[in-house]
């Protein structure tokens, strides 16, 4: 499938600090990508580069454009929610609707109004007076009514309670995602979006640590609950990560055939959060950090 975002060797310095250290990405159209990394890994910087909000070195094309060239043109095909609560506080709800309707050629006002009707947001409320959850609902109502090819969400549910968080992703998946649009979600709360994703990208200290489709996790990674008597044997196969689980040792292997591992115990495909911790730890060990 055609890549909607292509990046190679994406590098960005903030003074002497290397925020991005040669990120490579190829995001296929129609995917839901989880961009996952610890705080300060370079998630936001990567997204900023994608959205034309910062300068960088390296090659980058987003919807066949160089994002640095004309951000306002890019924004006809790309939309983003940068963080909770970035809607201007002085604005009233109706003004936000009026504004987006006025400037965005692909905004469907009827759709946004219909979404808002399902919430408790009043059109004459000032954004300052809305709760954090409501501000996110409003932002989502605006963004979901815009017909773009790429939607970028940077920690969209940060600071929200569980009800709003669940609702946010439910709506995104049910009312917005149609298989043609591409969605990039950056977060460090992995569990929340695990079931949504079609692709996974881990980044740490400005580098891509892992980039694969969700269906590829089972092919590439396997976790074994190793019986204590087999532990020594299993360790020889160099698991990338081990942890204690219910009195046994859970060993995570990368690129080892399942047939080879079955003799140690029960096999299963690791969850995204376990994989995340494992990849980051093993990377750090390898580099001796």
């Amino acid at each position: 499938m055609e890549a909607i975002v292509k990046a190679s060797g994406l590098t960005k310095y903030y003074g002497k600090f290397k925020a991005l250290d040669g990120i490579d990405l190829a995001i296929p159209a129609g995917a839901i990508i989880g961009l996952i990394g610890p705080n300060g890994a370079g998630k936001t910087t990567t997204l900023k580069a994608l959205l034309g909000l910062c300068n960088f070195e390296g090659q980058l094309s987003v919807v066949d454009r160089d994002p640095r060239a004309a951000r306002h043109k890019l924004m006809e095909d790309v939309c983003f929610i940068a963080d909770v609560g970035i809607l201007p506080k002085w604005m009233k709800v109706w003004q936000a609707l009026e504004y987006v309707a006025g400037v965005h050629p692909r905004f469907d006002r009827v759709k946004a109004e219909a979404f808002l009707a399902t919430t408790e947001i009043q059109r004459h409320s000032r954004i300052k007076a809305l709760s954090k959850g409501m501000v996110t609902q409003l932002h989502l109502a605006l963004v979901m009514a815009i017909d773009v090819r790429l939607l970028v969400l940077d920690e969209p549910t940060l600071g929200l309670d569980i009800i709003y968080r669940k609702e946010f992703y439910d709506r995104l998946l049910n009312d917005y995602y149609d298989g043609d649009r591409t969605v990039i979600i950056s977060t460090h709360q992995v569990e929340e979006i695990e079931t949504l994703l079609t692709h996974l990208v881990f980044i740490d200290r400005g580098r891509t640590v892992l980039d694969l489709p969700m269906t590829g996790i089972a092919d590439q990674f396997v976790e074994v609950l190793v019986r204590s008597e087999d532990l020594e044997e299993a360790m020889k196969l160099q698991p990338i990560h081990t942890r204690n689980l219910l009195g046994k040792k859970a060993c995570l292997f990368e690129n080892r055939p399942r047939s080879e591992l079955a003799r140690f115990g029960e096999l299963h495909t690791p969850g995204v959060s376990d994989l995340f911790v494992a990849k980051l730890r093993s990377q750090k060990l390898r580099e001796g950090v």
Binding site: L51, L53, A70, R71, H72, K73, L74, M75, E76, C79, F80, I81, A82, D83, G85, I86, L87, P88, K89, Y99, V100, V103, H104, P105, H139
Partner: peptide
């Protein structure tokens, strides 16, 4: 002001040029 309260990111997410 919009840089201070980060709402610039909302304005920048719209197809409006900085010149405009």
């Amino acid at each position: 002001h919009d840089r201070r309260d980060s709402s610039i990111l909302f304005w920048q997410s719209m197809p409006v040029s900085n010149l405009a």
